[in-house]
Nucleic acid binder design. Sequence first.
DNA 1: CGTAACAAATGAAACGATTCAAAGACGAGT
DNA 2: ACTCGTCTTTGAATCGTTTCATTTGTTACG
Lengths: 336, 336
Amino acid sequence: MSQTASIKDVATHAQVAVGTVSNVLNYPDRVSQRTKERVLKSIAELGFVRNDAARQLRAGQSRTIGLIVLDVGNPFFSSVARAAEDAAAALGSVVLVGDSGQDSSREAHYMDLFQEQRVQGLLISPVGDVSGRIDTLRERGVPTVLVDELADTDRCSSVSVDDQEGGYLAAKHLLDTGRRRLAFVGTPTIRQVASRLKGAQRAVGEVTGASIEVLDSAGQTVLAGRQVGNKLVERSPEKRPEAVFCSNDLLALGVMQSLTMLRTVRIPEDIALIGYDDIDFAISAVVPLSSIRQPTEALGRTAIELLAEEQESGGTKHRSVVFTPELVVRQSTAGA
Amino acid sequence: MSQTASIKDVATHAQVAVGTVSNVLNYPDRVSQRTKERVLKSIAELGFVRNDAARQLRAGQSRTIGLIVLDVGNPFFSSVARAAEDAAAALGSVVLVGDSGQDSSREAHYMDLFQEQRVQGLLISPVGDVSGRIDTLRERGVPTVLVDELADTDRCSSVSVDDQEGGYLAAKHLLDTGRRRLAFVGTPTIRQVASRLKGAQRAVGEVTGASIEVLDSAGQTVLAGRQVGNKLVERSPEKRPEAVFCSNDLLALGVMQSLTMLRTVRIPEDIALIGYDDIDFAISAVVPLSSIRQPTEALGRTAIELLAEEQESGGTKHRSVVFTPELVVRQSTAGA
DNA sequence: CGTAACAAATGAAACGATTCAAAGACGAGT
DNA sequence: ACTCGTCTTTGAATCGTTTCATTTGTTACG
């Protein structure tokens, strides 16, 4: 009684066979009203709870989907995760979230863990090149969908946002408002960041006399942004850029904190600032932050849809969905 | 080959017994160097991956800890969750996060789910009164720790922060800066919110001529805050409160958005504003937001520690840890 | 009354790991 | 040569479900 009852205990208590109890649970139509009631009564009395491990073992597969993100603390990813969870719940699945923290070994750790759990499928925002491992997974029947990263359509599915276009939009906007000396803040070792930078450089290339310098940040957090901001403040005013494009909003908010802390720099008059992701907090920043909005909700939902397609096709058909980002102009980049 | 190999396949391939393979995996010391190497080679060649479901079934318990929070989108909870995950990882466990969204039925759903998974234990920020269910869980050998909620020490363990004290600190601070007509924004149906309100009312009671009105918000989000803020703006200036205490930072940021949108209200001159939680974004708000800081990191870590204690004692010994919140003063409540 | 047709209930056989009592191998000591 | 002790290895039993070929029960019909 103290410990959990098994289906066998229920069967004994209700005076039926174990198969019947299982049928009550999984195929109620196959069981007569009378016995069904009796079994359900026993289940309630014994406080029986299905043992999922046993069910999975028999089924050979869990009802779990693994999701590996680069940083759950980043509202962009938590939003994608939430959308994925909701979409999965509608299919009767549960999403397990792993945070790689942009570290390949933690990423590998979660991939191993999810394999042991025999997840239905894997959604992953890869840190480095994981194509080899994904091939292995596919061979083993674990469909995989890349999230926020474009894939070869002949290898696996993916949902992503056109980062280069986003970077272009951001830089173009800064240039359109008259700024010429731009700076880019981020860690270009991350693919998304590199693409955004590339897009920005393309926009700069289209305007004569425009330039963009790259400021490498130690991470993609508010704190890292604050550090970069401090360095900017230390520079003599004429050496500061006229506009700063940060590879995400956390960095941008950090930079903003540093710049506004000392009252010598004004945003957007002295330095315009634009971020990326358009997280909820961007609008309520010291100076409402311009940003590039990504459809997080659609990303998460579509990732689950593609995973379902992969499963149905047995991992043979792949599809890539690319969303287009959108410029959101606020006060931080108001006309010079 | 395409599908995953079992321990039996490995045994056949390496020409040893299944028990030996298991020993290589779990008790490497019991196996001779020679066979160990042979088995490991076979494991690599067959691409064997342990089936966690089978292991759990045999073990009778998973290496998973369930965590049910009120809102993962709230940085307060995501921070607690992260700390718990890190602490659990150190013990070789994984944390599964469920979001109740302050809805009892979703909360119940996750409790059922976690029971089916035979989690090691449960950490929960309860929506309503779950003491009955927790008693049931304890009987079934699932230790539970309340998070952000004080428990009867003779029933289960808990980690929390003194919400009444936090509410008192916030209101006291507003009163200390000369404000008298206060407003409280939140949904007092949630226990934490009710306690914070109670603390605030105590502070108000200590000052003659001070008053506090309660503005019920539809939720605890930025959006809900914005709605309350809009109502405040609609009021004639003399009917507006002199200071607003929001039950969390999301609400406060929402209120701030509404108030600053129309340029008629100045923060802190016309209305002072203080939030709760001191999330990372509070400092970079339009007007840097005063708040009540809670030790999220310690909450998550301690929750796991208490769970471990519960497990060791077999669910007989309970302990409650209460942290003290801390006032963080920023510009949004600068002297009147 | 016999039997065909269908519905309901049965229970043994998986699933894949871990455990543990027992057997086997080997060297040392007498 | 024999026994004892130590170190390895073995393989059947077990965990709690689901599945499915069979059996049992019931009704309808010629």
